[in-house]
Design a protein around this nucleic acid. Structure first.
Length: 491
DNA sequence: AAAAAAC
């Protein structure tokens, strides 16, 4: 494993990386940084969560002349949140060098962006449409662009941005370096590379490194109308620190949020019809752990890097098997462990098999969570919470109160009552979801998938038995109605 | 058919 020190990175960038806690490189970084530093065009076939942003950010920033106040680099990303996030990371990497990055995306007041651009950032991270808008308004000038990065190129293709991308690339007046990152390399992206790139070097992260080894994957075999109750039970048993729940449609997301709120969970939703300002607030609250549960469409499936996400739920199977990998990649980040639970209705079982083939991992069937499981889980959690507070009361006057109580009541009864008080019965408020969208799967001819993953097929069945209930509960509910709204952060 | 994205 290589460290950043070995890669000819200039001191102040290296220093910034160290401050960010980055020492050893990921495979894509080790391969892409030296190539990009040589000034070569590069195609990086790598997925989200592999350290891509640093892989292109370091060479991009190293190349910048901080005395020059023109825009010297542009990153194009498929979603607004991603543009924001990449911008934040570039700002950190470029901080010591005095390199400024401004995110440019739709849904935000354009005069505000023009003001930010007047402060002369050297880097811009953008979504395609708004970037094009600025280019045509001449509020972003391209004459000194040195580097262009296309992030998640295949996703931009899927979302129909390819014409915008081509229009942007065609506007570039002079020679520049182009770095293209894509999880898959469909024909259309290859053509784009041929047209706009100059003898690109191809860097591939091996298939095995693409898979998500530290994420435990499970599925629940459910009927459509059981999903919501199973979700709540699973949340009660698992007690995630932070969870993301993916739904298939915007309406679906709204309904799940509403249902969760009705039952006392702390949840917020995000999708493309939510006003941009609210979207950013929702993400911020979730990052700050002020909200425990984020319910989302695939707008949040790619690239979002939120630390502390312990659980991902696929409330609905994703249409596109690729999307499954991206969704579950929101957990288990930075080497931490994560769990992914997928709800599968009987007619969707074939689709699940397709996903298993793609990820080369078996997704383990999880037994239906019973009410008894939930109560056991809640009780265990309550016991855990009690245990954590036991020593805290040493020597204070609560001990005296406890002695008085124990002189009157049976000790076991007292503790049992305490557990019962803490292990609040889950809300049974009826919730009825109406937005059942049947899954439509593209028919694929003769197995000719367009995903050239370069690996063998077949499952690598890595975990045999141990199908039973595993439970880890850390945080516990507080009192009454807003039990999930207050979090017990201190151990 | 849905999702995302420029006004």
């Amino acid at each position: 494993m290589k460290t950043f020190n070995e890669l000819n990175i200039e001191a102040n960038v290296l220093d910034a990386l160290a401050k960010m806690g980055f020492e050893t490189t990921t495979p894509i970084q080790a391969q892409a940084i030296p190539t990009a530093l040589e000034g070569k065009d590069l195609i990086g076939q790598a997925q989200t969560g592999t350290g891509k942003t640093t892989a292109f950010g370091v060479p991009m920033i190293q190349k910048i002349d901080p005395e020059n106040k023109d825009v010297q680099g542009i990153v194009i990303a498929p979603t607004r949140e991603l543009a924001i996030q990449v911008g934040e990371e570039l700002n950190r990497i470029g901080h010591n060098k005095g390199v400024k990055t401004v995110p440019i995306y739709g849904g935000q007041d354009i005069t505000r962006q023009i003001k930010a651009l007047k402060r002369r950032p050297q880097l811009i991270t953008a979504t395609p449409g708004r970037l094009l808008d600025h280019i045509r308004r001449r509020t972003i000038k391209l004459q000194n662009i040195e580097t262009v990065v296309l992030d998640e190129a295949d996703e931009m293709l899927n979302m129909g941005f390819i014409e915008d991308i081509e229009a942007i690339l065609a506007e570039m007046p002079q020679k520049h370096q182009t770095l293209l990152f894509s999880a898959t390399m469909p024909k259309r992206i290859q053509l784009l590379a041929e047209k706009f790139m100059n003898q690109p070097e191809i860097v591939r992260v091996k298939s095995k490194q693409l898979t998500v080894d530290h994420i435990d994957q499970y599925y629940y075999d459910v009927k459509e109308n059981q999903k919501f109750d199973v979700l709540c039970r699973s949340l009660d048993i698992e007690s995630p620190d932070l969870a993301i729940i993916f739904g298939r449609t915007k309406k679906r997301v709204d309904e799940v949020v509403e249902g969760l709120l009705k039952r006392g969970y702390s949840a917020e939703g995000i999708h493309g019809d939510i006003p941009q300002v609210k979207r950013e607030k929702v993400i911020k609250r979730f990052k700050d752990q002020a909200t425990d549960i984020l319910v989302a469409t695939d707008v949040a499936a790619r690239g979002l890097d939120i630390s502390g996400v312990t659980h991902v739920y696929n409330f609905d199977l994703p249409q596109d098997p690729e999307s499954y990998v991206h969704r579950i990649g929101r957990t288990g980040r930075a080497g931490k462990k994560g769990s992914a639970y997928t709800f599968v209705t009987p007619r969707e079982m074939d689709h699940l098999k397709t996903i298993e083939k793609l990820t080369k991992r078996q997704i383990e069937k999880q037994s239906f969570p019973t009410y008894k499981d939930v109560m056991e889980g809640l009780q265990e959690g309550a016991i855990e919470e009690l245990k954590q507070t036991v020593w805290a009361h040493e020597g204070d006057n609560y001990r005296e109160a406890a002695k008085r109580l124990l002189s009157e009541e049976d000790a076991v009864d007292v503790v049992a009552s305490a557990i019962k008080l803490l292990a609040k019965e889950p809300s049974q408020t009826p919730v009825n979801l109406t937005s059942v969208e049947p899954l439509r799967v593209k028919r694929v001819k003769g197995g000719g998938q367009q995903n050239n993953r370069g690996g063998r097929g077949g499952n690598q069945n890595r975990r045999g038995g141990g199908g039973g209930g595993r439970r880890r509960r850390n945080n516990q509910k507080q009192d009454g109605g807003n039990r999930r709204n207050n979090r017990n952060k201190n151990q």
